[in-house]
Amino acid sequence: MTEQASLRSPLGKAIGLGSAKEGVVHWWRQRLSAVALVPLALWFVASLIAHLGGDRAGLVAWLHAPVPAILMILLVGTVFYHTVLGVQVVIEDYVHHEAAKLTALIVLRLACFLLAVAGIFAVLRLAFGA
């Protein structure tokens, strides 16, 4: 391979192309949310099975109780947190066009935030009123 001639010093290249100063933050958050999702996901599947085919009265009675409502809010929040981190890596791996990548990352974050707020709002409405 031929080295391109450059006026930038090795230090300048390192500063320009080096660490994004994020370190292991993304990795760590992905693992932390994964650990939290192990019990939450098992609880979620078991609860859904218990309420299969039920009517709205059953759903309201279930999420009216504090513990299921709290766990469901934690599940929705953690799921979308974990989804952002996971899908972000997939986008960064496969989308190489810079504008498309940036657009996809922005849409991903805003959509997940919107869905998380909507989901938590729905649980609160079921828990407190409706």
């Binding site: 009517d55 709205r56 009265a57 759903l59 309201v60 999420l63 469901m72 929705v76 799921v79 979308f80 989804t83 869905l115 909507a118 989901g119 709002f121 729905a122 649980v123 409405r125 079921l126 409706a130």
Partner: peptide, 15 residues
């Protein structure tokens, strides 16, 4: 997850 939120919103909305 999109369907999960749809399901929760439907539950919060009406029978």
């Amino acid at each position: 997850t999109i369907f999960l939120v749809w399901w929760l919103l439907a539950g919060a909305d009406s029978p």
